[in-house]
């Protein structure tokens, strides 16, 4: 990958990639692997970008597709899926955000299913229901209901964390 491409096409959107990768990883090492994989796939499929959507939307799509399909083998050869419970101590490892509230929110998001994570991340990034439906590839009608349920679940988890 040329550094020009990284600087001009990926780095301005690194925030999106970081936010998504954080939601699908439980450790700094995994996070860096996911981040690199997303960047690699963005670069590889750059030729197919046909400008039918915004570049940022395209970055979202690739980031989510990579995170949804990425499998990481741990040292003991057990495969950890992003939907697995956060291992003890992992929170410390991924605590890269200065704000503790956002860290708590991430911990809660990681307890959702992989698809719910994608939906809520897009919602929090203020994507419209239509954009969320387009990126995920689902019906626009049910997105609102799904988001409502996810938010309820997140609030429950956050309340549990606080108490």
């Amino acid at each position: 990958m040329g550094s020009d491409f990284y600087q001009s096409m990926i780095l301005p959107h690194a925030g999106i990639i970081i936010k998504i990768c954080r939601a699908y990883t439980n450790s700094q090492e995994d996070f860096e692997d996911y981040y690199q994989e997303v960047c690699l796939q963005i670069w590889r499929s750059n030729d197919r970008f046909n400008q039918q959507c915004e570049w940022s939307t395209w970055v979202y799509k690739i980031s989510l597709n990579v995170c949804l399909t990425y499998l990481k083998k741990t040292c003991n050869h057990h495969q950890i899926f992003a939907s697995d419970a956060l291992p003890a101590g992992a929170q410390q490892e991924v605590a890269n955000f200065h704000d503790s509230s956002i860290e708590q929110l991430y911990t809660a998001i990681r307890q959702l299913s992989e698809v719910d994570r994608a939906v809520i991340l897009l919602y929090l990034e203020e994507k419209s229901y239509q954009q969320i439906a387009d990126i995920i590839g689902t019906n626009f009608n049910n997105i609102g209901v799904r988001i409502g349920r996810i938010k309820q679940r997140l609030n429950k988890i956050l309340n549990r964390q606080e108490s």
């Binding site: 796939q41 590889r44 499929s45 197919r48 799509k61 690739i62 989510l64 597709n65 399909t69 590839g137």
Partner: peptide, 10 residues
Amino acid sequence: DKDDNSYHYL
């Protein structure tokens, strides 16, 4: 097509 929407891609 990796940049297809997630559902179609999978």
